[in-house]
Design a protein around this nucleic acid. Structure first.
Lengths: 341, 341
DNA sequence: CTGAAAGCGCTTACAG
DNA sequence: CTGAAAGCGCTTACAG
């Protein structure tokens, strides 16, 4: 079924090594006649020859491939399409392919649970998109491995690339203060990242920390208007927020942890007869994509593309310096004007 | 740097072939002593041995890998996370890895533009997510290739898996009729899929066709309230829809091509003082994810997971029957109650 | 200018 | 019970 070099050589009436040289453009030093080159090329095309890459890999010792590891619990990986694309595109510049795999949450006794990318040499490096609740087991499994690895969207002291959520929280407050707001409240949303477990993505703490720090710096009182203890069902959220927005000491500005809060908040504002942005200014954190799906709220947009690019660059450096670690890098959010401030 | 079988054998004091047998659990017929097995396994662990998969591939003739091809113009591929995940998970059941690559829109004269997955043998099959405006060149390039290929989210007579958008359009109308609506209008949205080119994704025609067919069947008059000729800027959309909803012959129900229309429509309804669903019922088409990001509109939800699973299954069949084609399969939308009908 | 040979890392009949 | 050998498909010094 599959055609090999040998068969092409046979058809062209030359030795396989000659075919190899021609097809890989390594024949310049050999002055092979143009006629022969053409014959060989044609033979390859006629037979539909496609080289088997493994044979080359085995000699070069490089796979031309980087694996992106996701958590098998999809809530613990964050892979918006722009992030995936930027990783792919940046890898392509380095002539690397992208392999996608999942990492189990925990390993059982036998090693069978360990993903094949770790059990077997098939990539030159790893990008790990496993953003929270990472078990010690998983971490040690990766550290033990010989492959260079970079973590994304998680804060490690070494070898990670993550959005600067603290700074983003500060910027949100600054923008609202610039717009003359004083009573700025923060709205937590943790349903997206939170499983049954109590450990959240670092952004949950960091955005709020940034918000608080900037509020204090401006002499304003931070205020969290959501109830962390019990997550409100989506339907109840609008009701809950409506009550708050009807209070006399209602906030005149909100910082939302995530754009999914926009719908109930806007509904609540409507219920409370508040106009946006005149009566109530809103800034949210959001993914890159939201811009294109009609987000009508000012947003601190996650630097998905830059994070992907930086992760690949860091990984490239690690691949060139095996065993070396690099200082983690933060990436800045960008600001989107959505007409709500 | 990288440890090979040979080195493990040397450390364990046996021949490489013995190590290979033990490590691959193929030693059962050989009655190798438990002690020796342990020694060898330990030696492998001590040295951090990880087998090079290419060496195995070269013998087995299979790559254990399927490539997902996207268009390099991301607007022409549709890869919501549930689709990606279902493809990955279904492939995993078949012991296949997922490789991600892009397909250029057109090839230049030299073959250098052709993606490496097509230029080189590195996967056992292809899943192509290139949903519209596919050039003849690309199609022929794929057909010429020896690898079995399956297309997703596109209607070909052979070897494709696609959501049944005609039926979904019919269902939308049926649901609205069941809810007592008569003046049901259709709202087109083509910004998402449309580039500068005039060829749209097949769903643009099919959803409307389904809508029209079912309207006629019920003796109702179809009506498309958007202007296909000039796409309205997002900000202008709410205004435009407000005007329509204020007319005396305004629709009492809307079928939206895509959930991104929900925001301006809801805004327009609010402007026109119409209550949803009492005064105005709405059904939209949407991606799977929208359910989790607080979509408060009834929706025909794209069967992303099922599409991925079916595509992998069809590809598996093709891989077992090289050269054979299979009849394309449609996949049914599901229905999401969002409180707007 | 082209061929024969060795080798990449591993597996697997085949000897013993 | 274990080793030596051949071979997977390809590349690349080395001869000639």
């Amino acid at each position: 079924m599959v055609v090999t070099l040998k068969e092409v050589a046979k058809k062209a009436g030359v030795h396989p090594s000659v075919v190899s040289r021609i097809l890989n453009n390594k024949a310049d030093n050999y002055n092979i006649s143009e006629k022969r080159r053409k014959e060989i090329r044609q033979a390859a095309i006629d037979l539909g020859y496609v080289p088997n890459i493994s044979a080359r890999i085995i000699q070069e010792g490089s796979f031309g491939c980087v694996a992106l590891l996701l958590s098998s619990d999809s809530g613990k990986s964050y892979l918006p399409s722009h992030l995936l694309e930027s990783i792919h595109d940046e890898l392509e510049k380095n002539d690397k392919h992208l392999l996608l795999t999942k990492l189990p949450d925990a390993y059982s006794d036998d090693r069978s649970q360990i993903p094949k990318v770790l059990q077997t040499l098939m990539a030159d490096g790893l990008i790990i998109d496993y953003t929270h609740q990472v078990s010690e087991e998983v971490i040690s499994q990766i550290e033990k491995h010989t492959l260079p690895a970079v973590w994304i969207n998680i804060k490690h002291s070494k070898d990670s690339v993550y959005p600067d959520n603290i700074e983003a929280g500060k910027i949100a407050v600054r923008k609202l203060i610039e717009a003359g707001r004083k009573n700025i409240a923060y709205v937590t949303e943790i349903t997206y990242f939170a499983g049954n477990n109590s450990e959240y993505h670092y952004s949950v703490a960091d955005r709020y920390a940034g918000y608080k720090a900037e509020m204090k710096k401006a002499g304003l009182k931070p205020r969290n208007i959501n109830n962390n203890d019990k997550l409100l069902a989506r339907e109840k959220q609008a009701e809950y927020f409506t009550k708050i927005l009807r209070q006399s000491d209602r906030p005149d500005a909100l910082v939302l942890y995530w754009s999914s809060l926009a719908a109930p908040i806007i509904q609540a504002a409507r219920n409370a007869k508040l106009h946006i942005p005149e009566d109530l200014a809103i800034i949210t954190f959001s993914s890159y994509l939201s811009q294109n799906t009609g987000l009508t709220i000012n947003a601190l947009v996650e630097p998905e593309i830059e994070m992907g690019v930086k992760a690949v660059k860091m990984l490239s450096k690690k691949m060139k310096n095996p065993g070396k670690s690099f200082k983690s890098q933060s990436v800045d959010f960008s600001y989107w004007e959505g007409g709500s401030v």
